[in-house]
Nucleic acid binder design. Structure first.
Length: 524
RNA sequence: GGUCCUGUAGCUCAAUUGGCAGAGCAAGCGCCUCUUAAGCGUUAGGUUUUCGGUUCGAGUCCGAACAGGAUCACCA
């Protein structure tokens, strides 16, 4: 029980709450009145002030009355006078409780009943203090929600117009497990998630404006595919069926293109049963879109337009700062083939090494560890990671990928080893992945079979053959360009966060013993 | 999964060679009618993550577990 674990401070608050109720004051009342947000109240007062000034009056024509509601974030009791700040979605406003105005009994009620973190409804008149801060002179107030637990201490100091925070919550474990506390005390975290919401909205409207149709496809799938990743498995009890959580939307979205929804997109969650890192969370948000009568060159143009427009809308600029770099998202982005990039950065022309064996020798020479039976494409991937990707700071489309690691992409005409695929890189990190979609059903079937053979030694990475997807292609899919992007990654770039957990509200953490025990008792 | 680092009051952090576990904020009490990291005085607050070991004595050394972080591996 919550009460059993209270410390002295929390017990004191709990008892205050009970005492209020005893005295006939409900600490969690049902209704609340709020005429202005904090920012609206300040704006209303300032415009009244301006109007008075324009009329040459020293006093307002009539007082600006407001009823505000919010969380108490600072209290400064001064005996016969109390200052406080409340916070709501718009910001903060100062309250002034005066003995003259309220009387000794009411003032004492504020001082005694209220603690930092409590929610208060308060009404009065706006005025400006001698130090110049727009403030609510409190005439009435009431508790609207008592906080029993104590928020971490944090104080803002304004130094030369800059807000400096003092010893606020930084422990990542509490910040992510109890994100509500993090959000409550760290306004910049709230800001990050506002940017995230705006980003998703801007992506949607970009695609909507171009006649893309937003759809939702199955998360629980009998056959997974569209990426080379290990899936989570689950089980439908009544159907006695093993199911997979999707690792991509690709195969379902292309079925929809076959069905005639020739511009289609989905924003949703993918699940990959792999290691976690600063850029990987087991569930992450993906945007995929498919555009018929287009190829990867069309998609490249659309991508640079989309990302730069989203940045402009959300941040008001196309210049972002990330990892100490100033990055310019303005189109056009640099286009670089993998072959050319590797010639420049690694001094290797992959065309000189047409077999995995030949390339393997090059990697050995350069001291890059790899599995002896790795396909040629994987070896090229290792070279890219080592020499090429870290150099791609400004937005770059890295294009023309090895065929054997891209089973869903169409060949570059006349080049059997290379497919029309690109990945967008910013600050050395992959942002998106796109290709000219393979629409030849027989070729697609062969590629699945090839992949199955290539990964036969490692069951978990095996690409399952999705027969229904092949059948769909056999009904005819127009030439199509497809695109996938990690939305979390984009938000990382736009907000300057280096860890994906900073842009996911509830990132995955190992369960605690407490949670394990709760699960046990639940199933009893 | 490997390697390295970290875990001390509600929060942020100290603690000398192994020798009485401390500060600021937050909290309680007192004073204070324009404060804003309010101020002054005062009081309380600890299973040093957990379990075990070494030692006269462990926050500190050793082992294990748990959690977090960094990095590598994995990851189109």
């Amino acid at each position: 029980m919550l009460q059993d674990e209270f410390n002295d401070i929390e017990r004191n608050r709990y008892e205050k709450m009970l005492a209020l109720r005893e005295a006939g004051i409900e600490p969690y009342p049902t209704r609340v009145i709020k005429t202005h947000t904090t920012a609206e109240a300040i704006a209303a007062f300032e415009s009244a002030e301006k109007a008075a000034q324009a009329a040459g009056e020293s006093a307002l024509a009539e007082p600006v009355k407001a009823t505000l509601a919010g969380r108490l974030r600072a209290i400064r009791n001064m005996g016969k006078l109390s200052f406080a700040h409340i916070e709501d979605r718009d910001g903060k406003v100062q309250l002034l409780f005066r003995l003259d105005e309220l009387g000794a009994e009411r003032l004492a009620q504020f001082v005694n009943d209220f603690d930092l973190g409590d929610y208060i409804e308060t009404s009065g008149e706006m005025f400006r203090t001698r130090r110049g801060e727009v403030t609510l002179q409190v005439m009435n107030f009431k508790m609207i929600a008592k906080a029993l637990l104590v928020l971490p201490a944090d104080k803002d100091e304004v130094v030369n117009g800059e807000t400096v925070r003092h010893s606020t919550l930084t422990d990542p474990e509490i910040r992510f497990r109890q994100r509500y506390v993090d959000l409550a005390v760290n306004p910049e975290v709230r800001e990050t998630f506002k940017v995230r919401a705006e980003t998703v909205k801007a992506l949607r409207s970009f695609l909507d404006e171009r006649s893309f149709v937003e759809v939702e496809t199955p998360i629980l799938q009998p056959v997974y595919g569209g990426a080379a990743a290990k899936p989570f498995t689950t089980y439908h009890n009544q159907l006695k069926q093993e199911l997979f959580l999707r690792i991509s939307f690709e195969l379902y979205l292309k079925r929809l293109v076959v069905g005639g929804i020739d511009r289609v997109y989905e924003i949703g969650r993918d699940f990959r049963n792999e290691g976690v890192s600063f850029k990987h969370n087991p569930e992450f948000t993906q945007l995929e879109f498919y555009m018929a009568y287009a190829d990867y060159l069309t998609i490249m143009e659309l991508t640079e337009q989309m990302v730069s427009e989203v940045a402009q809308k959300v941040l008001g600029t196309q210049i972002i700062r990330f990892d100490g770099h100033e990055i310019d998202l303005t189109p056009p982005w640099r286009r670089l083939t993998i072959r050319q990039g590797l010639i420049e950065q690694a001094g290797v022309d992959i065309n000189d090494y047409p077999t995995a064996e030949a390339l393997s020798a090059v990697l050995k020479e350069k001291g890059i560890a790899h599995k002896p039976d790795a396909p040629r494409g994987k070896l090229i991937g290792l070279l890219m990671e080592e020499y090429l990707e870290p150099t791609l700071i400004q937005p770059t489309f890295l294009m023309d990928y090895p065929r054997d690691i891209s089973p869903l992409a169409k060949n570059v005409p006349g080049d059997p080893n290379t497919v029309e695929r690109f990945e967008g890189f910013i600050a050395g990190v992959e942002l998106c992945n796109a290709f000219t979609e393979l629409n030849d059903p027989i070729e697609q079937q062969n590629r699945f079979i090839e992949m199955g053979r290539a990964y036969a030694s490692d069951d978990e990475e095996r690409h399952p053959l999705d027969e229904d997807f092949v059948r769909a292609l056999a009904y005819g899919m127009p030439p199509t360009g497809g695109f996938g992007m990690g939305v979390d990654r984009l938000v990382m770039f736009l907000t300057g966060n280096h860890n994906i957990r900073e842009v996911i509200l509830f990132p995955h953490l190992r369960s605690t013993r407490e949670e394990d025990e709760e699960t046990k008792t639940d199933t009893k």
